[in-house]
Structures are given as C-alpha cells and as structure tokens.
C-alpha cells in the first residue's frame, strides 16, 4: 500500500508537462507530415490527427518499448543485488544504447532521442535526488539511493564523453527503474507521454484546439495506448537473452516506413517551429 502511494506520487511527477525534458520541441514527424500534404482533405483534423497518433504510436511502441523494458530490467537487477557492480551495469546499458543507435537510422529522430534522453538523466540527478539538508543517518534505503545516483551520474558522464549516445528509451528505462516505478507503469507512461506530446504538437501547429486535444486524449487515445502496451510489453531486444533466437523474428522493428521518411525530411521544411 505504502509503495503504491509512492508510485502514484511518482507518476504524478513524471506526467507533469512542465518537466524540462525537451519534449515540447519535438513533434515526432507530425509537422513534416502535415507540411508534405498528408493530412487528407476528406477527413476532419481530429480524424487525421488520430490516424497519425495511431501509426506513430504503433511504430514507436514496437521499436522503443523493448529497449525501455531491457534498460529497466538492468537497473532493477542493479539495485536488487548489491553484488552487481556498476561497471557491469554500465556495459549492459551501453550495449542497449549501441543497438538502439544502429536501429535508429533517421538523423532527425536520433537528434531528438539523444537530447531528450540526456535531459531525463539530468532530471534524475538534479531534480529527483534527495536534497542534502534532508539526508539523515545511513539506512538501507539511503545507501540504495546513493548507488542509483552514482549509476545515473556515471551513465551521464559516459554520454558527455561520447562513449555512448544516451537514447530516450534507454534513459527512460533507467530513470523509471531508478525511481522504482514498476515496468508496467513505466511502459504505459512512456507511450502516454508520446501520444500526449503529439497532441500538444497538434495544438501548437494549430491543427486542434486545446479542448479538442484534451477530448481526444481522454476518449480516443486511451484504447490506442492500451493496445500498443499489450502488444509490445513482452518484447525484448536480442540482448536480453542471447540464447533466444526468437528476437530475430520478433524483436524491435519499424512498422511505419512512411512516417520514417517524413520524419527524416523534417529539416527540409522551408519554415518550421519544432526540432523534429
């Protein structure tokens, strides 16, 4: 019960749209999609936006959620066992990050993913670590928090040294794992934030009004998130279990090549308000 309360509180913090995570400058290809004439003149702005959210969410869930799950798992193992050393954990996270880098072949998406990823780690070390004046005598809990903080700081340092990229899904798995949010909630929240980000981009692009966007978020987007979470929550990357050849046929994948091309063409727009 107590853990549930803490988890709910963390969910409230993480779903705050004012968090400095850089997501407000990302439209994940929506701006480019509209600019290239792909919003059909035959259907309403709401219908077109929903179709975009549906396709974008499906391809993002399929390509990113396995990385969230595996990173979350690595961090969970790290704090559950005092024997797991920080170097091994960093090596595991770097391997995931390298794999995500080799699978993200769109320089615009790469750029957005890296800037949001490192912002999440900074958020943890600066915004979610315990302030010095509240630190009391050493407990199991405080030792654990110190260990997690040094893990996140180490990861951040290696990103700054360009030893790894620091992609968003990996950093999200690390952040939520370090905050001890359950994997189910971490997965769900990640997709929720992706969908909500698209809706706020639609508002900024003047496609939808703020009330209309809220209506869609409450009534239409939820079943979409539910479906993608249930479809992708059990997927892993090939690194999770090297003996399972199944990941070769059922691992992370892009499912929307059209969205990929248009997101890559973002920088070709004569004028634009988003970074991706």
């Amino acid at each position: 019960m107590e853990h549930d309360d803490k988890e709910t509180y963390i969910l409230l913090l993480l779903s705050d749209s004012n968090l400095p995570t850089g997501s407000f400058v990302a439209s994940s290809g929506l701006e480019s999609f509209v600019k290239h004439g792909f919003f059909s003149s035959h259907s309403s702005a709401s219908d077109s936006t929903l179709s975009f959210i549906q396709d974008s969410l499906a391809t993002y869930a399929r390509s990113a959620l396995p990385f969230v799950s595996d990173a979350h798992h690595i961090v969970e193992e790290f704090f559950q066992s005092d024997d797991t050393d920080i170097d091994t954990t960093i090596v595991g996270l770097h391997a995931l990050d390298d794999l995500y880098e080799s699978m993200t072949l769109n320089h615009v998406a790469k750029r957005a993913s890296k800037s949001q990823g490192v912002a999440l780690l900074t958020l943890y070390s600066k915004g979610f670590s315990k302030p010095v004046f509240l630190q009391q005598e050493e407990t199991t809990e405080s030792t654990r928090e110190t260990r997690l903080l040094s893990l996140v700081d180490r990861l951040k340092l290696t990103i700054r040294r360009e030893e790894t990229e620091g992609h968003l899904p990996i950093c999200w798995g690390v952040l939520t794992g370090a905050l001890q949010l359950s994997l189910e909630r971490a997965q769900y929240l990640h997709l929720f934030l992706h969908a909500r980000g698209l809706l706020s981009a639609a508002v900024r692009l003047n496609i939808l009004g703020p009330y209309g966007a809220q209506q869609l978020l409450l009534h239409a987007v939820r079943p979409l998130i539910d479906r993608e979470v249930s479809r992708c929550k059990h997927l892993h990357t090939e690194l999770h279990n090297a003996e399972l050849a199944e990941e070769n046929f059922n691992g992370p994948a892009t499912t929307w090549p059209l969205g990929e091309i248009l997101a890559t063409r973002h920088d070709l727009q004569h004028s634009r308000i988003f970074n991706s």
Binding site: S32, K35, H36, I261, T264, R265, Q269, H270
Partner: peptide, 22 residues
C-alpha cells in the same frame, strides 16, 4: 537532398525520399 525546400503542400507528391548518414 540539400536543395529541397518544402513549402506547404496540399497533396502528397508521387514520390518522396530521404537520406541519413551513418
């Protein structure tokens, strides 16, 4: 690719392409 500049289009073009370096 760098010469392409996209202004608001009303309908999609017959062919689109993109390029990213590795």
């Amino acid at each position: 690719y760098e010469t392409i500049s996209v202004f608001k289009m009303n309908v999609p073009s017959d062919l689109i392409w993109s390029i990213s370096g590795i």
